[in-house]
C-alpha cells in the first residue's frame, strides 16, 4: 500500500471514531509525515491503528514501526528545519505539534517506532 491509501484509511477511521474535521486533518497530516519517513528512509513498515484509553483519555492511536536505518540523533531530528534528506525538516517536529501524545524510539540499524495519539 502506498502513503495515499494508508492516509485515506487514517482519515476514515478518525472520522468513524468521532474526531472533528480539524482533528481529522491534524492526525491525518501527522500520520502522513510519519508514513513518508518510513517510505523514504526505511522502504516501508507496519502501521497499527487502534482506539484505547491512555492516561484517562480516550485516544485514537497510530503506531508506525519500521526496520530501517534508525535515527542517529533523535534530539536533532525533532528540531525544526533539520533533515538528513532533501525534505523541509518539519516532518517529525510538526507531527509532534499536531497530536496530543508523541512517542519516538529508535535504534541505529534496527529501526524506528513512532506512536502518536489524538484524544477523542
Amino acid at each position: 500500500m502506498d502513503v495515499v491509501k494508508v492516509r485515506q484509511l487514517v482519515r476514515y477511521h478518525a472520522k468513524e471514531i468521532g474526531l472533528g474535521i480539524v482533528d481529522q486533518t491534524r492526525i491525518t497530516t501527522a500520520a502522513s509525515e510519519l508514513f513518508r519517513n518510513m517510505f523514504l528512509y526505511a522502504e516501508g513498515g507496519d502501521v497499527l491503528m487502534d482506539a484505547g484509553i491512555y492516561n484517562d483519555h480516550k485516544a485514537f492511536i497510530i503506531t508506525c514501526i519500521d526496520r530501517g536505518p534508525g535515527i542517529e540523533d533523535i534530539e536533532m531530528a525533532m528540531k525544526d528545519g533539520y533533515s538528513t534528506g532533501d525534505g523541509m525538516g518539519y516532518g517529525l517536529p510538526g507531527s509532534k505539534r499536531l497530536v496530543d501524545d508523541f512517542y519516538i524510539e529508535s535504534t541505529v540499524n534496527q529501526g524506528t517506532t513512532v506512536r502518536i495519539m489524538k484524544w477523542i
Binding site: V22, T25, R26, T29
Partner: peptide, 14 residues
C-alpha cells in the same frame, strides 16, 4: 486553503 488545513500548516511550522 480550508480552515482545517490552515491550522494544520501553522502547527506543522511551515
Amino acid at each position: 486553503i480550508s480552515p482545517a488545513i490552515a491550522q494544520t500548516i501553522v502547527h506543522l511550522g511551515i
